[in-house]
Design a protein around this nucleic acid. Structure first.
Length: 216
DNA sequence: ACCCAGGGTCATA
DNA sequence: TATGACCATGGG
């Protein structure tokens, strides 16, 4: 992808939506939990689940591991796929504690940390990259369905582009820039919620032409 | 009633 | 390697 085009889209989105102030969480660990809970799920449902974990004093790796599966599933019920996600949260928390927690993991280089995260059951590329960018503040560009949809509509990538390929394209076009990656992904999600497929025009389409007309 | 959301895993061909 | 099934709640 061309640098200029990628930056132009960012400027358009920023002008349309303003700063997003992501990730909405009080701690890196909360980011990690939210990243699992939001898999294929609306964030509004995740907020309730996290509030419920907090209410039961279970927003820590140890307390999650020590919880019964059926209890944990009940607390995160609102986020959907609760049985699956209860198991995924536990595997993530085991990984987290086995590696010595946040400060120890923060010593790792980004490539090694990403590789290790991807080996955790239930952590795929997008969840891993959410964690890397928003919890560990590493320069990793997060790709999601919104990103592929928007950029393929804009004609900047193929519709069926692979995750790693598109991630590499963004990172190459933008350079390693954590605050920029943070804001950009958040803006893409905001644009996705603005939903061109429902509204005839979303705010950013006024500025970044093509998004509407290419919608199928 | 239908559609989809800030995905990932697993079984099958 | 490439699809398809499956997981499941809540808001539009």
């Amino acid at each position: 992808m061309k640098k200029a085009a990628v930056k132009r889209v960012f400027n358009s989105l920023l002008k349309a939506y303003g700063q997003r102030h992501w990730w909405p969480a009080g701690s890196p660990f909360e980011v990690m939990v939210g990243a699992v809970l939001t898999q294929n799920t609306a964030w509004s449902n995740v907020e309730k689940a996290i509030a419920e974990l907090k209410r039961h004093n279970k927003l820590s790796a140890k307390s999650i591991i020590d919880s019964r599966n059926d209890h944990l599933a009940a607390w995160i019920r609102s986020s959907g796929y609760f049985n699956v996600k209860a198991a995924r949260l536990k595997s993530l928390c085991r990984w987290y504690l086995e590696r010595g927690g946040f400060d120890a993991l923060q010593q790792w280089n980004t490539a090694a940390l990403r590789h290790d995260l991807l080996a955790v059951h239930g952590i795929g590329p997008e969840t891993a990259d959410d964690i890397l960018l928003y919890a560990f503040e590493r320069p990793v560009f997060v790709i999601d369905a919104y990103t592929k949809r928007l950029f393929s509509r804009l004609g900047l990538c193929e519709q069926d582009v692979g995750y790693e390929h598109l991630r590499g394209a963004f990172e190459k076009a933008l350079g390693a820039d954590v605050p920029l990656f943070n804001e950009y992904h958040a803006l893409i999600v905001q644009h996705g919620k603005d939903v061109c497929r429902v509204k005839p025009r979303c705010q950013a389409c006024v500025l970044a032409k093509g998004c509407v007309s290419a919608a199928a």
